[in-house]
Structures are given as C-alpha cells and as structure tokens.
Design a binder for these strands. Structure first.
Lengths: 200, 200
DNA sequence: CTTGCTCGTGGCACTGGGTGTCACCTACGG
DNA sequence: CCGTAGGTGACACCCAGTGCCACGAGCAAG
C-alpha cells in the first residue's frame, strides 16, 4: 500500500497530470470550439495518449467541468453547518455564495470554464447531470429543516429554483464584466426569495 | 412543388412514420433502458433502416422528445396573446399550465415520455438544450412586459426559475399518481411567486 | 542483486451514435 | 414516354468511450 507520504505524492502527481490535461483541453476548446476538437488533439497537446486522457477525465465534458464533485461536497458541508435559526432560503443562498467565492487568481480560468459550459450545447447538456447532484444536496437540506420528505414539492422546488438563480447569476457575471460574481448571486437570490418584487 | 393537398399528404405520411418510430423507441427504451437499446434495434422494430431513423429523428434523444418545438411555439403564442393587465408571473404560469393541458388519452404516453426523460441521465442532459429554447421565449416575454433587455437578470431569472417550477411539478406528478398535472403546476408556481411562504 | 508485485501507461480492437454520399425506386408532371 | 424530386437503403466514414493486454518503472521482500 505504501506510506501516507507516498500516497500523497502519488495523488499529487495524478492531480497535476489532470490539471495539465484540463488546461490543454480548455485552451483548445476555447480556441476552436468544443465539438471541433478531438480527444486525440487534447491528448497530444497534454503529452499523453488518448487512453490516458480517459483514465484521468472519464469523458470529454469532464475535462471542462474538472473536479466539480468537490464543490458539491463543500456545499453539503456548508448547509449542514448552517445555523439552525437562519431562514432556510438564507442558508441556501449563503452556501451558494460561499462555495463560489473564488480567489482572484482563479477567476480567469473560471470565466473560461463557465463560458464554455454556458455556450457549448454539449456542455450545457452535461451540466444537467452535474446539477442533479447539487439539487439532491439542497433538497435534502430543506427537507431536514422543514421536516418534510426530500422528494416533496417544496424541497425540490427550492433546490431547482435556487440553482436556476445561481446559473442566472453566472450568466450575468459572464456577460457583464463589471459585476462581481458574489454580487450577482446576491441579487438573484434576493429577487427570488422576495417573489420577484421587480415585477410589481 | 405540388399542390397544397399533395404537400399535406406527404407531410402526414412523414408524420405517421415518425410517430411509428417514436412509439417503437419509447416501448423499447421503457422496457430495456435508453442506453441498452441501439438505434439498429429501434429501426428494426419500426421496420425501417438505421439511416432512415436518423433522417426522421435526428438523434436518439429526439425519438423520445418528439416534436417539442411545437410546444415552444405554442407557448410563445400564448405569452404573446396574454392580457396586458395580467401580472407577468401570472401570464407565464397560465401559459405553462395551458401548454401542458393534455387530453386524457395522451396522458399515458406523456407519462412514458417524461419518466424516461427524468430518469435516464442522457435524456435529462438533453433536456437542458430543449429548455434553453423555452427560456429564451419566456425571457423575451418578461423583457417585453417590463421594458428591460431580455438578457438582464430579472427576465432570465423568471425564465429559469419558472421552468424549474414546471419541471418540479412534472416530477411530482410522475411520482404521485393522485395529483393532476395542472394542480401540480399551479402549486409550484404559487409557491414560487409568493417567495416560498411554506418556509416561513 | 534478484524476484515479484503494483500501478500508470500505451496500443489495439471493438461498440455505438451520427453524418456524408451514392444508387435506387417510386410517384408525379409534362 | 421521359424527366425530375423526394424518400429510402447501403456503405464508408468519424469520433467518443470501453475492455483487454502487454510493457516498464518503482518498490518490497528474499
């Protein structure tokens, strides 16, 4: 099995390889479009074989999505740690804001990622599968806080509509270079939680 | 070109062939799962060639989705015809309810379709692409009514969250055999429009 | 130093979705 | 009777994704 140190090193090396693949993929996809680039081209650019690409990334879309699972886990942790006296919607909103609080240095790559995801149909489609995990986590939190089943209307509705708000905030942030991602998220969640006061 | 009558006949024949393909596909997918069935098997069951399948349906997912474009067009028409003094959210809600007002005889096939779409990951993914069209239509309506740009926050947010509500209503309707689709839609839209009163 | 094990890697073959192309056949109009 | 247009099937591709095997590097035990 190896010691803890060795395991860490191996995991780091694996992570580094994956990061190299993702960077190559992101650059190629951005330059030529997601569908126009083949896996062989990405693998060549990353200096690996086609077979190794799939071992690290699973699918073509995963090269863009990266380690999204980590986000879901962090979101789940934040929701579990939310204060019990905080309104449910506020806890969901705060968790979304916090999980999307990126360091300044990470923003360019995030922009590149999100632009691809929201622009390329194949990636947009794949997003639904990823979001399903997020929805399950949020719905479970709402269900726990309200004492109803996770597959009841309100938990599911809160999960899907808050995710819709988050996605919309991302779109706004991408399109409008001035607004902060956090500000966009706050704006969307406030509008949603208040029942769309702008429409009255 | 041919006369109007001839064109109609040709279109009808084409529509009938497509319906046969869709029915064969739906039955096979329901019985064995979406991924487990190949296009060749669907084509064989429909009595056509693999190539003809793609000419009629475009992609494997389209065989399940059917002529969804028609729904989007109808939704657009309803929104355009909505009374000007009706609140925006109410007009969107009413349009969703009306476009999903199926005849009793169509409900079994609708159940079959929606169960597949909401269950099979590949179809769920494809749904995002279809929903993007719906969102554009709704956002355009909200933008027209509120006098802001269609890609501003509120129109987009209304579009994505109302669609989230509709999807949630569909899930509820599928899971709970007793509730009407219309009732589920109303319940979801009411909850959304009021800012989730159940959570207070 | 050698043996044996593990693991990452590359190569290969195969399945399956989707597309372009061509040939055929049928139905219709002149 | 001929010409054409459109639906169809057959074939050859491309590409994503998977299973399998063989090779080589690194490490552990002898």
């Amino acid at each position: 099995m190896g010691t803890v140190t060795e395991t860490m090193v191996a995991a780091d090396a694996r992570e580094e390889t994956r990061a190299r693949i993702e960077q190559a993929a992101l650059d190629l996809f951005t330059a030529q479009g997601f569908e126009a680039v083949t896996i062989d081209e990405v693998a060549d650019a990353a200096g690996i074989s086609r077979r190794t690409f799939f071992r690290h990334c699973g699918t073509k879309a995963d090269a863009v999505w990266g380690q999204f699972d980590g986000h879901v886990v962090r979101l789940e942790g934040m929701l579990a740690a939310a204060a019990a006296d905080q309104p449910v919607l506020a806890s969901v909103s705060a968790a979304y804001v916090e999980v999307n609080d990126y360091a300044e240095a990470d923003l360019p790559m995030l922009r590149q990622r999100m632009r691809l995801i929201l622009t390329e149909p194949a990636l947009l489609a794949h997003s639904q599968v990823r979001y399903a995990d997020v929805d399950r986590v949020v719905a479970a939190h709402v269900a726990r806080r309200t004492g109803v089943a996770p597959d009841a209307l309100v938990p599911r509705l809160v999960a899907t509509s808050t995710r819709a708000a988050a996605t919309t905030a991302f779109e706004l942030w991408l399109a409008d270079g001035r607004i902060t991602l956090g500000a966009a998220l706050h704006q969307a969640f406030d509008e949603l939680a208040a029942g769309f006061p702008s429409l009255r």
